[in-house]
Design a protein around this nucleic acid. Structure first.
Lengths: 149, 149
DNA sequence: CGTATATCAGTCAGACTGAAATAG
DNA sequence: CCTATTTCAGTCGGACTGATATAC
C-alpha cells in the first residue's frame, strides 16, 4: 500500500546523519566479527596502542585509545584474563600499573588486524582505491581538527 | 612526564574508527545545540520526513526515519505535546495513526534546520566547498550501498 | 489464518560522572 | 595542599527485543 517513504535529501545528505548511520553499521560489523573470536573493538585498540608505544600506564592507555579510565579497568581485567597483556605495578610511581602486551597478545593483535581489515574492505566495497584514500584523508582531517582522539 | 601516546596509524586511519569518533562528536554537537531549544535530533528527522512526504502512519514514519517503532510512540507523544504534529486514527485502516505536521511544526522545522545547518558548517569547517561535496557524496554512496536508511 | 500496527516493558552495551583510596 | 592514578558504583540516553491487543 504505502511505499516506504525515503527521507528527503536535506535529511539523507546530512553529514552528521550519514556519519551516525555509517558508524552504527560499521561498529556492528566490527562487533559481530570480533565476537566470533571472543574479542571487542576496544581489545583491538588497546593491543594496537601497546604494540606501537610499548608498556603504558592505564591512564596513558586511556588517553591513547579514547577509552574512559573507568572502563579501562574492566577491559584490562578481560585482557589479562586471556593472557594478552600483563598488569604490573610501576615501582617508580606506585600509583600506576604498567600494562605490557604479551606474545599471545601480539599474535592476537595480528589476528584481529586481519578481521578488522576485512570489515573495512567490506565497508568501503563500493569505492575505488583512490576514493577510499580520499575518504580516509577527509575523515582524518575532520577528526584531527576536532581533536577527537 | 609521559607524552600522550598518539594511536598508531593503523588505528587512527581506520575508517570504522574515524566514523565512530566523528559520529559521536557530531551527535554530541547536534544534541547540545538542539537541547537549547528543547529538541532532539529525532524530532528533526520526524518533522523533516513529514514535511516532505505528507501525513504518514507511525510505521511508515519509522521506516522513513530509521527510528524504532517502539521508540516512535514516545517520540510522537513528545511532539504532540508540543503541538508540532497531530496524531489521528486512520479511518480506512483502524490499526493506524496518521501523523500530520502542524503549522507550528513547520515553523519549528525551519528553526531546527538553521541550527543543524550551523552544526554541519562547524563540523565541516576545515574542508573546502568541493571537499565537503566529495565527502557527502562518498558517505552517501556507502550509506546507500549498505542500505542504512 | 498469517501479517501489520501501535504500545509497553524491559534488556544491553557505551559513554560518561562522582567519589574514594592511594600516592606523587 | 593540590594533583594524578586506579578503582568502584552508578547514571543516562540509544538501539534493540519480546509480547500483547487489535485490526487487516
Amino acid at each position: 500500500m504505502s511505499d516506504d517513504p525515503r527521507p528527503p535529501e536535506r535529511l539523507s545528505n546530512l553529514p552528521s546523519r550519514l556519519l551516525s548511520l555509517l558508524a552504527l553499521h560499521a561498529d556492528r560489523q566490527v562487533g559481530e566479527r570480533l565476537a566470533v573470536v571472543g574479542a571487542r573493538k576496544w581489545h583491538y585498540a588497546v593491543l594496537a596502542v601497546l604494540a606501537a608505544s610499548g608498556p603504558l600506564s592505564q591512564a596513558d592507555l586511556s588517553r591513547g585509545t579514547g577509552i574512559y579510565r573507568s572502563d579501562m579497568v574492566a577491559l584490562i581485567n578481560e585482557l589479562t584474563g586471556q593472557g594478552l597483556v600483563e598488569r604490573v605495578p610501576d615501582v617508580t610511581d606506585r600509583r600506576r600499573n604498567m600494562i605490557t602486551i604479551t606474545s599471545p597478545g601480539r599474535r592476537r593483535l595480528r589476528r584481529l588486524d586481519k578481521i578488522i581489515g576485512a570489515v573495512q574492505d567490506n565497508l568501503l566495497a563500493p569505492l575505488t582505491t583512490s576514493e577510499r584514500e580520499q575518504l580516509i584523508q577527509l575523515l582524518a582531517r575532520l577528526a584531527d581538527h576536532h581533536a577527537v582522539s
